[in-house]
Design a protein around this nucleic acid. Structure first.
Lengths: 141, 141
DNA sequence: TTTTATGCAAAGTTTTTGCACTTTC
DNA sequence: GAAAGTGCAAAAACTTTGCATAAAA
């Protein structure tokens, strides 16, 4: 049994064909996918998959930290799988490929400084970086 | 003539009642507002204001860096006025109030480190902090 | 008076809800 | 077999487009 299946099972949720299909799709994608895209690819694994289920499954995955929503400048319909422990997304503006990184330490300094300056008690943060991945840099030259 | 009016005028855009109404609404709000909310409040300043115009105006404001889109966990429909120079948003999870901060230096370190580690050429970043503002902390006690 | 902007209506998308039927455990 | 999950259809919410009218410079 895979890791995510244990997490859901432990919370009383069931492992179903649609959920496995959606996880499969997310796991095989290097770029964030919209619910619509997930549906299209997911049909290959589960013919009767419906868009409604994709929405509900993404919500579930997000609730358990298995996937996270990626907000792009044009919209906010992308979802990517979330590696445990890692928190931030780095997106390539050319090809859309996304990787994750941690870099927690540096952020902690910043967060502490902002907290001290503003009086806010800071509970969470959300960082995304945008750039050009090594592969796309090569194409340019 | 206000600053934003000069910016738009210089680019050949006109200062209209709807635009003034929307700017007024944004300026007076401490929390991010959705197009729908902007419409509702904007009607107080310009009775014939329409939702379509709100969308088009926000797009225009964003293009000129006058407003920016704020992405919240629940959705991504909020807009706030953007103070020049500042880049990041800090949101109160209790009351929704948002302030901006810069904190560029700390981020530069992080960005440089991530760039070195991943090989990405990082062009832009996007940081939002979430927490509890001083006022809401007092209410708790 | 010329050009830009508006607002209505309508179309296009995206997301959510209700409910009977399936599937998992 | 009971509870959780699915998928259809339909509704709701959000966003964009076309076009005739209105307003700004």
């Amino acid at each position: 049994m895979e890791d995510w299946e244990q997490i859901l099972t432990a919370a009383g949720h069931r492992i179903t064909a649609p959920r496995q299909a959606i996880m499969q799709v997310l796991a095989q994608s290097e770029t964030p996918l919209s619910p619509q895209e997930i549906l299209e690819r997911g049909l290959a694994y589960h013919v009767r998959l419906g868009l409604v289920t994709v929405y509900r499954t993404l919500e579930l995955f997000e609730e358990f930290g298995l996937a996270c929503r990626v907000h792009l400048a044009e919209g906010c319909h992308g979802y990517v799988l979330r590696q445990p422990g890692h928190r931030h997304v780095l997106l390539c503006q050319e090809c859309g490929r996304s990787i994750e990184f941690s870099g927690q330490d540096d952020l902690d300094t910043l967060v502490a400084r902002v907290a001290a300056r503003t009086g806010y008690r800071i509970a969470d943060h959300w960082l995304q970086l945008f750039g050009v991945c090594p592969a796309c840099q090569e194409i340019e030259t």
